[in-house]
Structures are given as structure tokens and as C-alpha cells.
């Protein structure tokens, strides 16, 4: 494919078009993925998550500038929520990243969640593959503002950074399962605000527990708008990546990730296999009516559709 050849040479326009194919589940999406897949696996993928307003975009901007100084090519995927009612989205993360737009070694793409819960979109992992294949070395995936259980990013990223700020939550919230369990690095951004000490004390509960890999999560203070703490954070990101490589975790987690990817692809393909068939769309709508009237349960209806599609 000519498009893939161009994107492998680092052509941004080709990469952008390829990403759209993946996001839209175009018929050519599978071909694109197939062609770029052998060229992936070289990038370090860093997930940035945390509540709305903690400064994730500004932090990504500051980190991107820092890694550019270190001669790394930087890809950024910034995810914002899609309206569940209209399907529209206002993607505004570029506002905080303006000056990077013209940097040759930076590629930024905004994405809507498009109906996917968990702070990412269904195509996020695939889109990261494009940036990886085009030669980006550090890829930041910034989730939509996350609450407590948006933990998808940990399945996609090598290094997960949870961004908090002073004044959010208390010690009980820090004990709950979910987002605070996935952090390899915890950043308290806006550390020039009051309340840093109690935020650190609360987070220390989350930091105490070693990850299954043996990595002990670290905490760090930043003021991203003033580039404070950014060099240390970049060092820590590199330290975690080195740990993953040296401990063999990168490899073992790679297998886990492959399993997740296959699972996701399987459910998506099954879904499309059924709904691609015009004769089954009518049946789908009939079953929806029956489920709404409580004449059939959704699981039996799904089995029925699979049967009609010749899969069950």
C-alpha cells in the first residue's frame, strides 16, 4: 500500500490518513494494520491519566518539549469525550500544545472516545501503532479526564502516569480500587497550590504497594506551566522504561497486551460480521424490540444472531 509506504517514511499526512481509516473502521483498516504491524514495537508508550483539570495536557506539552531536547521523536494522542447523545466532540487538547505543531519531530492527534468507556477510544491502541511505525520514539496517550475506574490506559501503555492535584480526594478515596492502582508514577501537578502535603500523604498509600513486576511506584511534584519538576519526571519515565526492559517485564507484559488486543479484535470482528449483513440488521432490530418488551433476554438474542450469522 502506497499510504503505508509513505507513513513508514515518516510522512505525516499519510499517517494522519491511516489513523482516520483505523478510527472509522474503514474496510482498508485491517490492511493498514497488517502492513504496519511488523514495523511496530519500537516505541515507549506512556499513558497519562487523571481527573479533569489536573493539567494533563499541559504536562504532556512540557514532557514533549523535554524529550525533544533529548532528541526523541514524540507522538501525542489526546483523547477527549464524545457526546453520548450526538456523537459530536470538542477536542481541545491542542490549545495547550500550540508551539509543538510545527516541530518536525512531533505528531499530535486528537481523538474522541466515540462511545467507548474507560477514558480511551476503541481505536487508541491501533492508532498508537501508526505513530510507532512512523518512527515516534516516545508516544504519550492522554486519556479523557478520568474518574475512578478509567484504567484502560494501563493495558495500552508501558508506563502509566496518574496525575493528581492538591485538594482532590482524601485517604479513603486513595484506598479504593481503580485508577490509583495502575500508576507507575504519580504526579501531583499544580504543586504551587495549597494542600500538597495532604495530597502526598493520601497518595503514599497507593505508592506503598509494589506492582506485580516488582516496580515500586514513585511520587513526584510538578508545576507543568512553569516546567518545574519536568526534568525529574522525564528521568523517572526513562528509569521505569529501563526497569521494564531489564526485568523482562516489557516482554511478559507484551504477551498480556497481545492477548488483550486479540480479545478486542475478536469481539469487534464478531460484531461486524453480524451487523455487516443487511438481512441480519432487520433481525437485530426485531430482537431489540423483543428485549425492550422483556420477551427475550439480551444473551439469548446475541446467541440467536450468531446462529443466524453461521458462527454459533
Amino acid at each position: 500500500m502506497e499510504l503505508v509506504e509513505r507513513l513508514l517514511r515518516g510522512d505525516k499526512r499519510a499517517a494522519a490518513k491511516a489513523i482516520s481509516l483505523l478510527e472509522d473502521y474503514d474496510k482498508k483498516a485491517a490492511d493498514v494494520l497488517g502492513a504496519i504491524y511488523p514495523h511496530t514495537g519500537k516505541a515507549h508508550i506512556i499513558g497519562i491519566t487523571g481527573p479533569t483539570g489536573t493539567g494533563k495536557s499541559t504536562l504532556v506539552f512540557a514532557l514533549a518539549k523535554e524529550f525533544r531536547k533529548r532528541d526523541k521523536k514524540v507522538g501525542i494522542i489526546a483523547i477527549d469525550p464524545t457526546s453520548p447523545y450526538t456523537g459530536g466532540a470538542l477536542l481541545g487538547d491542542r490549545i495547550r500544545m500550540g508551539n509543538l505543531t510545527l516541530d518536525e519531530g512531533v505528531f499530535i492527534r486528537s481523538m474522541g472516545t466515540r462511545g467507548h468507556a474507560g477514558g480511551t477510544s476503541r481505536a487508541t491502541a491501533d492508532v498508537i501503532k501508526v505513530l510507532d511505525a512512523m518512527g515516534m520514539q516516545k508516544i504519550f496517550a492522554e486519556t479523557a479526564g478520568a474518574g475512578q475506574s478509567e484504567v484502560d490506559i494501563a493495558r495500552i501503555a508501558h508506563t502509566s502516569i496518574v496525575v493528581e492535584m492538591p485538594g482532590l480526594g482524601d485517604d479513603i478515596q486513595a484506598m479504593k480500587a481503580g485508577i490509583l492502582e495502575i500508576g507507575d508514577i504519580f504526579v501531583v501537578n499544580k504543586a504551587d497550590l495549597d494542600g500538597v502535603d495532604s495530597t502526598l500523604a493520601n497518595l503514599s498509600l497507593a505508592v506503598e504497594r509494589e506492582k506485580p513486576s516488582g516496580w515500586k511506584p514513585k511520587m513526584l511534584l510538578t508545576v507543568a506551566t512553569e516546567d518545574k519538576g519536568i526534568t525529574d519526571l522525564a528521568d523517572l519515565i526513562e528509569e521505569h522504561y529501563d526497569f521494564l526492559k531489564e526485568s523482562g517485564t516489557l516482554e511478559t507484559e507484551g504477551v498480556e497486551r497481545a492477548k488483550e488486543e486479540l480479545r478486542a479484535a475478536l469481539s469487534q470482528h464478531l460484531f461486524l460480521r453480524v451487523l455487516e449483513r443487511p438481512e441480519l440488521i432487520g433481525e437485530f432490530n426485531n430482537l431489540v424490540q423483543m428485549i425492550a418488551k422483556k420477551e427475550m433476554d439480551p444473551h439469548s438474542a446475541a446467541e440467536k444472531l450468531l446462529g443466524l450469522a453461521g458462527i454459533a
Binding site: 494522519a16 481541545g92 491542542r94
Partner: peptide, 28 residues
């Protein structure tokens, strides 16, 4: 536009023409 189902990418203020075209390319 958002309310009509469009994915809107807002660049923010003070963009140069070069930045606008490059953003349009990367966002396809």
C-alpha cells in the same frame, strides 16, 4: 458543530497560518 455530531478540533488563539495547515494535516 459539536452538537450536530461533528468532531471539532479547536486550536486556541494566536495561530499562524503554518500552524493551522499543519494541525489540519495531522488531524486529517
Amino acid at each position: 458543530l459539536r452538537d450536530s455530531g461533528v468532531e471539532v478540533i479547536y486550536t486556541g488563539l494566536h495561530q499562524t497560518p503554518e500552524q493551522i495547515v499543519e494541525a489540519a494535516i495531522q488531524e486529517d
